[in-house]
Amino acid sequence: MGTVTIGVSIAVPEPHGSLLQERRAGFGDAAAHGIPTHVTLLPPTEVEAAALPSVEAHLSAVAAAGRPFRMRLSGTGTFRPLSPVVYVRVAEGAEACTRLQQQVRDASGPLARELHFPYHPHVTVAHGIEDAAMDRAFAELADYEALWSCTGFALYEQGPDGVWRKLRDYAFGGGPVVPTQASAPLEQGTLPAH
């Protein structure tokens, strides 16, 4: 069966997700339309395709133990010069994201792995593009705000075309699986007027 590349993330719900994806594309990030707007819980990880059922069972258990929490995005940050990334900051919900990613990568589970960098929840809005475009992303989204209730996370697989596709949603508390996009925003994301 071979291997597959998977990731686990919290989708940024609508209208925020599409808005930030379009802004990312507008800054010149060619990967924007292949990567749904998200907060990473498990970065791209190669697993045996045959292990997917145990991965799904593990993620179901993590979700069943979880509870909804508030997520608030506010302003921008960057990992430059260490990594060519500009992001929107997770101003509220970062601790819950940190706990979740630890549970997803638990040493006793099928997704145990070390990270290349310390975990820092964020929403990437520019990656690996020209410095001037990175500066523009940092400045233009500096006043961005979004707030919603996070009710779960999702498992994604990266296709041979580089596009990430959702395999399954996981709702907190073992409730019914609801598409992440159905999470109603508590207020609209805003952009500064130019």
Rank of each mutant, 00 (worst) to 15 (best):
H38P: 03
A91S: 14
G26W: 12
M134V: 05
A107C: 05
E140R: 08
T98Y: 04
V86I: 09
H120A: 14
S108W: 04
D106T: 02
A31R: 15
S83V: 15
P44W: 09
Y87C: 06
F79E: 04
A51H: 01
A49N: 13
F79H: 08
R89F: 05
V55R: 00
I129P: 01
R24I: 01
H120D: 11
H127L: 12
H122Q: 10
H58V: 00
V104L: 04
F117Q: 10
G109D: 01
R99S: 11
R136S: 10
E140I: 11
L52A: 04
H116P: 09
H33Q: 14
L59G: 02
P36I: 11
L52I: 02
A133P: 04
G17E: 02
L19E: 13
Q103F: 13
P118G: 09
V39R: 02
H58P: 03
P81I: 11
L82F: 13
F69L: 04
G66N: 01
L19T: 12
A49E: 15
R89Y: 03
C97V: 06
Q102Y: 08
A61D: 12
L100C: 05
E46D: 12
P53R: 00
Y119I: 09
S60Y: 00
P81F: 06
V85E: 02
I129D: 02
L41Y: 04
L41H: 07
L82Q: 15
P110E: 00
Y119Q: 08
E140H: 04
E48I: 05
D29S: 10
A32R: 06
A51I: 00
R136F: 08
R136T: 10
P53S: 00
A96C: 10
D106G: 07
R99F: 14
Y87M: 08
R89T: 14
T78D: 05
L42Y: 07
A126M: 07
P121E: 06
R99E: 15
A61W: 05
G75Q: 05
L42R: 02
D106P: 00
G26V: 03
A139K: 15
R23L: 15
H38V: 12
P43R: 09
